[in-house]
């Protein structure tokens, strides 16, 4: 690759990433409404276009043409700052996601760490948005969202540390490359590294649900108690950007689960690895996330925090110790 094509490549990836994030936000809303409809024995959106496929377009136009209401008595700077603060880190995280062996914007060595560094910023968007709205429901929702994020970041990071101990690298593409050659080389089935790999995956997946504020952990958006949650005062595209950020975060979380545990762009039977496998696994996970939202009731805030502090963190710590022991002791027994 010569020097002249590098800026063009970066520009292409920039446009592609923004388009991917926006398209996902639009069509995941459509999928969400369709799944919700069928779960509740309705049809869901069907009027605009075949199967309602043009519905996201219409929704987008509606959101963009609506007046953005700025209430009095808010903090004008923080109120405007919050939606981009939620969206920008999520979009930036796409930079290191390897869609296939070559289709990755920046193949940096610290990719995994970078995603978590940016993921820890977006909770500030919720916090500042809720606080800046000067609305008691928004403040309660923001406090809930933050306590939830703090609680679930711990087991998630511990699980990721066990994965890093096994993979010896933070480069996402390298992690996927280690899982080549069939389904039993995926880390979720790599029982020689740690017999509880399946539990690691479950902890990671549960934490990513909670980190992205998805049901059954969407206490920050509990409509029945909090009007709408931390975005109560946002209208028009302010609300739209919050939504885009939320869906971008879901895509990031599911991508990470795919890359760390399900072999990323590797094929289950060792043939034709490529971007299609990544997308198939990614969308199966996203579909699971959506199905979970519409089939499980919302927990309480105490149930949520107890699950993290009393179940997930002890299990994650045990997993960490077990992995360390396996790494040190296994070669001694079977040299």
């Amino acid at each position: 690759m010569n020097l002249h094509s590098e800026p063009i490549r970066l520009l292409a990836f920039l446009v592609g990433i923004i388009a991917f994030a926006a398209l996902n936000a639009a069509y995941l809303v459509w999928l969400e409404r369709k799944v919700a409809g069928h779960v509740q024995r309705r049809i869901g959106p069907k009027e605009v276009g075949p199967f309602g496929l043009l519905q996201p377009l219409v929704d987008g136009i509606k959101l963009m043409t609506k007046q953005v209401l700025i209430p009095d008595n808010i903090d004008p700077i923080l109120f405007r700052l919050a939606p981009p603060l939620l969206l920008i880190p999520a979009v930036m995280s796409f930079v290191t996601i390897p869609f296939s062996e070559t289709l990755v914007a920046r193949d940096i060595n610290l990719g995994l760490l970078m995603i978590f560094a940016f993921a820890s910023i977006n909770v500030l968007g919720i916090l500042l948005g809720g606080w800046g709205s000067n609305n008691k429901y928004a403040v309660i929702a923001a406090a809930r969202g933050v306590s939830q994020n703090v609680a679930y970041e711990i087991p998630m990071l511990i699980t990721v540390i066990t994965m890093v101990m096994i993979t010896h690298t933070l480069n996402l593409n390298e992690i996927v490359r280690q899982q080549g050659g069939g389904i039993f080389n995926w880390y979720i089935f790599r029982w020689s590294a740690n017999p509880l790999m399946l539990i690691s995956f479950l902890i990671f997946f549960t934490c990513s649900l909670a980190e992205t504020n998805r049901a059954p952990f969407d206490l920050g958006e509990a409509e029945s108690e909090l009007v709408a949650g931390y975005h109560t005062e946002y209208s028009g595209m302010g609300f739209g950007i919050f939504f885009m950020g939320e869906y971008a975060n879901i895509v990031i979380g599911c991508s990470l689960a795919t890359i760390l545990f399900l072999g990323g762009w590797q094929c289950p039977f060792g043939l034709w690895p490529g971007v299609h496998w990544f997308l198939i696994k990614l969308y199966i996970l996203i579909f699971t996330v959506i199905l979970i939202r519409w089939t499980f009731p919302r927990t309480t805030i105490y149930g949520l925090l107890n699950l993290s502090w009393k179940v997930l963190i002890p299990f994650a710590l045990f997993n960490l110790i077990l992995t360390g022991a396996m790494i040190k002791i296994w070669p001694m027994i079977f040299p």
Binding site: I121, V146, V150
Partner: peptide, 21 residues
């Protein structure tokens, strides 16, 4: 990245949380 993760992500959020309380 550690600065972002620890100071902005963890310490900053904890300070903001304390302010909210």
């Amino acid at each position: 990245l550690m600065q972002l993760l620890i100071y902005v992500g963890a310490v900053g959020v904890v300070i903001a949380f304390a302010v909210m309380l």
